[in-house]
Design a protein around this nucleic acid. Structure first.
Lengths: 224, 224
DNA sequence: GCAGTGGATGACAGTTCTGTCATGCGAGGT
DNA sequence: ACCTCGCATGACAGAACTGTCATCCACTGC
């Protein structure tokens, strides 16, 4: 279960939040000051931090900076009544994953907490790893395999990246330039035809896969 | 560059948003009605949709439902002056990635748009393909990469399968026999030490990864 | 301390993957 | 009908991946 760290100086709010989030199934730790919060955040792993901006010792922005400096992937949801919109924008730009203005409805906080945790968090590895491709065919994201008519075909890294790119833009034409940038990470075309070659390999490997050629432009995965 | 679809019936707001987002470097398309918005959303690929809840033909919730039904990974940021907090919570629960109340400051909208679009590499399939590994570290199921402290490390097929197997049983000891069966598909041990070798390769590649050795038994990924 | 066992490590060869090149083929334009 | 350009195709070399082996090291029990 996900762990949440609350850093806020109002003890009443801390208690309410702790109760609400605990009953929502999270493991909650609280801190009343920036220094106590930092100590917890830097020594124990947390999945999400709820941070108030007005703390007695440091500002919330300073706390964020320290944490994100050592844990760039840390997720911080800022809770504050900041009257200045520039401050709100500031924390979002500085790396907070969300900002919720006080006062707020508990249900909205829980919804946002759930949302920010679902994101890079604990995904049950079963669902959402398949992308439908056509009748009876799908791409298994986790296994890098294409399944069609009960036949699993393994894809190499590049092949998989290419299929995925096309699927994400299914129906739209992808230019070679876009494919080179998105799949190969090349920002310019050094005069290669890898794209053509890999399209061919995909077509050979995945006969039911409808990759269309758009002359003078690029390729397109037919919208299912 | 990321593509944004705006669906709102107020033409003034559409124009302002289009101007602001275009100058922020995004490619913007607008629609004034739910049906026009749905047509665009379902035929062209978008990275983010800005959706008003009060539209002339359908409600924003209905639009969301249709889109998320066919594109579960679509990202929708709802913009609305919804007075009822239950409605705000509703759209967040239903799958919107964010909610911003009207009226809003343009800078905050841009900050939130940027935030929801951040990490364009993993964005479109980004959700639900990551498994948390520890503080700031996670495994990207779709890309077969390990991300720790902003460093992406590519994994080979075998390496990835092995990490995944361990993660799925995090905290439990996995015997060599189990690993050979589950990762290599070998139902008997022909007297190999591949497991040891690959554990080593993983440790070398992923220093922050806590794989423990259990003597005479096997290996274990420390429960986060 | 010493021996024995199991895991860690480094090097190696077969296989697969990746990108390049030369060539073949076909759609459009003249 | 012919020419031209762009995509398709097959072959190839370098790089990466995979599994094996021999050796080294550390823990365990004596």
């Amino acid at each position: 279960m996900s762990r949440i760290l609350i850093v806020d100086d109002e003890s009443g709010l801390r208690e309410v939040l702790a109760r609400v989030l605990t009953s929502a199934g999270y493991e909650v730790t609280s801190a009343a000051t920036a220094s106590a919060g930092l100590r917890s955040a830097l020594t124990e792993p947390f999945d999400l931090m709820l941070l108030d901006l007005n703390l007695p010792d440091l500002t919330g922005e300073q706390v964020m900076q320290v944490i994100l400096d050592s844990q760039p992937e840390a997720r911080i949801l800022v809770l504050s009544a900041a009257p200045d919109p520039r401050r709100r924008v500031g924390v979002l730009v500085a790396g907070a994953v969300d900002y919720l203005a006080k006062p707020f409805v508990n249900a909205e906080l829980v919804a946002r907490v759930r949302l920010r945790l679902r994101d890079p968090g604990t995904a049950p590895t079963g669902e959402h790893t398949r992308v439908a491709l056509g009748p009876g065919a799908y791409l298994d994201l986790a296994r890098h395999e294409l399944v069609a008519a009960d036949t699993r075909t393994a894809l190499s890294h590049r092949e998989f990246d290419l299929v995925r790119y096309l699927i994400e833009r299914r129906g739209a034409v992808c230019t070679r330039k876009q494919l080179l940038a998105g799949v190969w990470g090349l920002e310019f075309d050094p005069g290669t035809n890898v794209v053509d070659v890999y399209i061919r390999r995909l077509r050979a490997k995945l006969s039911p896969l409808p990759i269309e050629t758009v002359r003078n432009v690029g390729y397109r995965l037919a919208a299912s």
